[in-house]
Design a binder for these strands. Structure first.
Lengths: 112, 112
DNA sequence: GGATCATTTCCACAAACTTCGAAATGAGGA
DNA sequence: TCCTCATTTCGAAGTTTGTGGAAATGATCC
């Protein structure tokens, strides 16, 4: 992941509704959720939700699939993992950052 | 870390200059860098840099310390680790997200 | 084809963000 | 005290983001 993609993904998650939305989709798992169900769960008007879904999709963090009349959204786990890997790389790359859940190895660092 | 803090941290990093700035401070390590040196390294005017430094500081991702006439900035590693932990929690909490560098354990999940 | 349901696009507006020159602040040195 | 250096604050302009109602799209059923 390059820094431009990372900025897009970070910006996509840096918003109350979108972070809640992404968490909801992560919880929903492989089945995903329909746009309408998401709007209801989050209490956000459809048009606003559609805007946020587009933002997350533009950042590559979620994917959509049409099923009959509804559109199912799913979290894109590999994209999220790539973001976390990028942040760990930038957190631990050059200096003392051992412990606290940041135990990336030197080998992993070089290939990330 | 709660979602509000996560949003602040994500928003602070979701900007070209600030992401570059944070990476620079991570590379600089424990010695940190003076504001002027950062501005020169990034090619950003002092007043603009000061704005971005304040944003990162507001999100708790960096810390400052006066040394004689200059002000030294340092990355706040624990804050960054907390952010990564929060994202891993939200990435892997409920469903299949094994592999791809996302190997948080169930025990870690519960305490994060 | 016509009705209906789910979702998106359009639009306009308010709020927040980014930028950077100029002036202000604050710490040391002479 | 006065001067200088490092940094921040102020102010004003342009840009981007978030919001939600109304209209448009697209798929399904009768």
């Amino acid at each position: 992941m390059d820094s431009t993609s990372a900025i897009d993904a970070l910006g996509a998650l840096a918003q109350e509704h979108r972070l809640a939305l992404f968490r909801l989709l992560v919880q929903a798992g492989g089945n995903g959720m329909a746009a309408g169900a998401i709007a209801e769960a989050l209490g956000v008007p459809n048009s606003s939700l559609s805007f946020h879904l587009a933002q997350l999709r533009g950042a590559g963090l979620i994917e959509q699939e049409r099923q009959h009349r509804t559109i199912i959204y799913r979290a894109n786990y590999p994209a999220m993992n790539a973001l976390v890997a990028y942040l760990m790389e930038n957190c631990c790359a050059a200096s003392g950052c051992e412990g606290d859940g940041c135990e990336i190895t030197a080998d992993e660092r070089e290939t990330a």
